[in-house]
């Protein structure tokens, strides 16, 4: 299982990559493995406001459906359209081409509340 070190994680298995005031959000390798084949991803449109810890979309796999929880608050500035047409990118490349939304971070202080890679590894190992 892959756990990139440059990301922050949530206990709900989302990741965020922060660059300046912008964050890219997706689900972890562990999460895609547990879900299995992803068939649809329902995401908000650009302009939508995310609130940390609140659901911002759903992900449908063959076997189950799961909510997506925002790792951070902010405004959606871009949505990954590729995963609407090719949802298995979420399975194949969860940290890369399977990203979901790009947000303008509202409050950088929220980043400190997220898990670092070691804490996330521990969570998954349980």
């Amino acid at each position: 299982m892959n756990f990139p070190e440059n990301l922050k994680y949530t206990k709900d298995h989302e990741w965020i990559r922060v660059e300046g005031g912008t964050g890219w959000i997706g689900i972890t390798d562990y999460a895609q493995g547990e879900l299995g084949d992803v068939v649809y991803v329902e995401l908000p449109s650009a302009g939508a406001k995310l609130q940390q810890g609140k659901s911002f979309g759903t992900i449908e796999a063959v076997k189950a459906v799961s909510d997506l929880y925002a790792p951070i608050g902010g405004e959606v500035v871009e949505v990954n359209g590729d995963i609407q047409n090719t949802p298995d990118l979420v399975n194949k490349d969860p940290y890369g081409r399977g990203w979901m939304v790009k947000v303008r971070i509202a409050d950088p202080a929220e980043i400190a509340t997220l898990l670092d890679v070691e804490a996330y590894k521990k969570l998954v190992a349980k």
Partner: peptide, 9 residues
């Protein structure tokens, strides 16, 4: 086993 390589495959 619920799956091996993936349900769709």
């Amino acid at each position: 086993p619920v799956q091996y390589s993936g349900i769709i495959q």
